[in-house]
């Protein structure tokens, strides 16, 4: 920590007040409410309700559909994370290497960052449109009749593809800036040391990118689990049907569409615990790394 420079007793309180009060009202209070209502079954209008203990949680664990959604969420998260990281890295390595047109490529590969997930969803809807969507036709050309909204796996594929597309730029930006911060001397030494460029990449560059990659791993998991809401909501057009969905979307479907406040809150709490675990994992790893270096 930096040495403290000023010591006014009321000044820091005043400075922190806006942030802390917003956090209390809009963060702790709702989080606490979620926890509380996960133990109740409540009439949506708020007239009547019953305390049910852990029943909302038990119902979820006994529900085979919740398990199925969890499995899809896992597949979804792993695919989106892996492919968007892989594409981001590939483009970053190449953009770092070329001399001609580097900045043009950079711009072209990063601007999608600014596209909102639901807008990406709209693009997905039109590309995967039943019958005459461009990608639908492409699949048709290769002999697969692709029907979004009907075939569970087709819909899953479309959701994953659009989510990857939206996430590539941020990974690209981070990897590129990671690569460019590798000191010139190391690069030149590596060139002398290692014959093939791919060998050079895996032995020298990749380890240097590891901290970035690790940070991005967490960011991408969070993205896939939570920020893809807009993509999913738009692409499913608010009709869950027999389509795949993520756990976050399920919170919305049960809570807002269905008015099941208790069940939805219990799902929220489960997600909170999941994020908590993820964060602890992240910090322990960072701690260890700091410890050994």
């Amino acid at each position: 920590m930096k040495r403290a420079a000023f010591s006014s007793p009321w000044m820091p309180v005043l400075l922190l007040l806006p942030q802390v009060s917003i956090i209390f009202v809009f963060f702790y209070w709702p989080a606490f409410e979620a926890l509380e209502s996960s133990f109740y079954l409540q009439d949506p209008f708020g007239f009547t309700g019953t305390f049910v203990g852990f029943e909302n949680y038990l119902t979820l664990f006994q529900n085979s559909e919740y398990l199925r959604i969890s499995i899809f969420t896992l597949v979804f998260t792993v695919s989106v994370t892996f492919f968007s990281l892989a594409f981001g890295l590939l483009f970053a390595v190449k953009a770092d290497k070329v001399i001609r047109g580097a900045s043009t490529y950079k711009t072209l590969l990063m601007w999608v960052y600014a596209v909102a997930p639901p807008v990406a969803g709209i693009l997905g809807v039109s590309l995967f449109y039943q019958g005459h969507g461009l990608i639908t036709q492409l699949f048709g050309f290769f002999g697969h009749e692709f029907v979004i909204g009907v075939n569970y796996y087709d819909t899953g594929f479309a959701l994953i593809a659009v989510s990857i597309w939206k996430q590539v730029p941020i990974n690209f930006i981070f990897f590129l800036s990671g690569l460019q911060s590798v000191p010139r001397s190391i690069r030149e030494a590596a060139m002398i040391d290692n014959r093939s460029s791919s060998g050079r990449f895996w032995t020298i560059t990749f380890p240097l990118l590891a901290p970035t990659a690790f940070f991005l791993l967490i960011t991408n998991i969070t993205y896939a689990m939570f920020d893809t809401f807009g993509v999913i909501d738009v692409m499913l057009r608010s009709e869950p049907g027999n389509n795949p969905m993520t756990l976050t979307y399920k919170v919305y479907v049960d809570g807002f569409r269905g008015g099941d406040l208790g069940g939805s809150s219990a799902q929220s709490v489960i997600l909170m615990l999941l994020v908590l675990a993820l964060t602890i994992f992240q910090f322990r790893l960072i701690e260890r790394r700091i410890h050994y270096t």
């Binding site: 963060f27 209070w29 709702p30 989080a31 606490f32 409410e33 979620a34 209502s37 969070t222 939570f226 920020d227 809401f229 976050t248 919170v251 919305y252 809570g255 807002f256 406040l261 939805s264 809150s265 929220s268 997600l271 909170m272 994020v275």
Partner: peptide, 9 residues
Amino acid sequence: LPLEVRILP
């Protein structure tokens, strides 16, 4: 906790 998780409350 992302907003999405505590959205209902």
